[in-house]
Simulated assay, not measured.
Amino acid sequence: MSDTTANSDRETLAAKRRAVGAFGDRIFHGITAASALIVLALIAGIAMSLVVGAWPALSKFGFGFLTSTEWNPVTNNYGALVGIFGTLVSSALAMVIAVPVSFGIALFVTELAPVWLRRPISTAIELLAAIPSIIYGMWGLFVLAPFLSDYVQPWLNDAFGDLPIFGYLFSGPPIGIGVFTAGLVLAIMVIPFITAVMRDTFEVVPAVLKESSYSLGATTWEVVRSVVLPFTKTGVVGGIMLGLGRALGETMAVTFVIGNSHSIPNGLFYPGNSIAATLANEFTEASGGLYTSALIALGLVLFVITLIVLALARLLLMQLSNQEGR
């Protein structure tokens, strides 16, 4: 009888534990689902508020708001093309500079650097990511811009000024501030983020795969090209898109060095503007409903650009995932 009673008690206790566990799972599921829905609700709320605030400007200017270069608060004529151009060009220039540098740093830290040197370099990269953007802007204005004006921009003008494409890109007065300086500062700012993601993804590559390639006589570059990159391509693309998203939305650092000129620059050395810089410079001084609405419309355009970039990144990652194993 005692054995039967003991077995019955154990079964009852196990049933109670299963019931408690199932109840806890339901609570956990509800909390996580609510958290995800809160994020979606926040994004939808932000988008809706931007659309409502931007509607007066969008209804007045229509599609011409995206194609007009005029920005005149006196006559209440506004266009977003200058800000869109400056945002895309400065971000593209930043990625052209930052991606190869970040790849080289991550590769050196994970594959080439001595063990005693890896930790200091990784710590320095993390410290760069912790510097506030306004500090980057002040440094770019007071240190980097004079250096570029005195040494780099005159040399680029002399070296590439006569070439068909590069002559256009590297043309303009060597005054230090402009789209080129903004792109360079953005590159320095996003390098730590891209490097950190690449480094972490490179470190998860199984050592047996790399050692097998080395045993077959492969060089370091061949191992990176044939083993490391195919294994980590999803993480690498994700890190690049993370840096691009940071560059698109950067405000204070770009405001300091881009020049804040409401005109399409004729070269990288000319002053320009970006959407974030325009918002930072003019939102507190906006007077009148249409002026404020135009600034909110700029924010809506930046929001849409960021969504498009993230959507393209997600599609690229899905395509890379589907191609794995082929």
Results as ranks from 00 to 15, higher is better:
residue 106 A to E: 01
residue 108 F to R: 08
residue 109 V to L: 10
residue 109 V to T: 07
residue 109 V to P: 04
residue 109 V to H: 00
residue 111 E to R: 15
residue 111 E to C: 05
residue 112 L to T: 13
residue 113 A to K: 04
residue 113 A to Q: 03
residue 115 V to S: 06
residue 117 L to V: 14
residue 117 L to D: 10
residue 119 R to L: 15
residue 119 R to N: 11
residue 119 R to F: 15
residue 120 P to K: 05
residue 120 P to C: 01
residue 122 S to F: 11
residue 122 S to H: 13
residue 124 A to N: 07
residue 125 I to G: 08
residue 128 L to A: 15
residue 128 L to S: 14
residue 128 L to H: 14
residue 129 A to F: 14
residue 131 I to H: 07
residue 133 S to T: 13
residue 134 I to S: 12
residue 135 I to G: 06
residue 135 I to P: 05
residue 135 I to T: 13
residue 135 I to W: 09
residue 136 Y to N: 07
residue 136 Y to L: 03
residue 136 Y to I: 04
residue 137 G to E: 09
residue 138 M to Q: 13
residue 140 G to Y: 11
residue 142 F to K: 10
residue 142 F to C: 08
residue 144 L to G: 02
residue 145 A to L: 10
residue 147 F to G: 14
residue 147 F to I: 15
residue 150 D to H: 06
residue 151 Y to P: 06
residue 151 Y to V: 15
residue 153 Q to K: 07
residue 155 W to E: 08
residue 155 W to L: 11
residue 157 N to C: 01
residue 158 D to S: 10
residue 159 A to Q: 12
residue 160 F to D: 00
residue 160 F to T: 07
residue 161 G to S: 11
residue 163 L to V: 03
residue 164 P to I: 01
residue 165 I to M: 12
residue 166 F to H: 05
residue 166 F to V: 06
residue 166 F to N: 01
residue 168 Y to F: 12
residue 169 L to S: 01
residue 170 F to G: 02
residue 171 S to P: 03
residue 172 G to M: 07
residue 174 P to H: 06
residue 182 A to N: 03
residue 182 A to R: 00
residue 183 G to Y: 03
residue 184 L to Y: 02
residue 185 V to D: 00
residue 186 L to I: 05
residue 188 I to K: 00
residue 190 V to D: 08
residue 190 V to A: 04
residue 191 I to Y: 02
residue 192 P to F: 11
residue 192 P to C: 11
residue 193 F to M: 09
residue 193 F to T: 12
residue 194 I to R: 04
residue 200 D to P: 05
residue 200 D to E: 15
residue 202 F to L: 06
residue 204 V to Q: 13
residue 204 V to N: 08
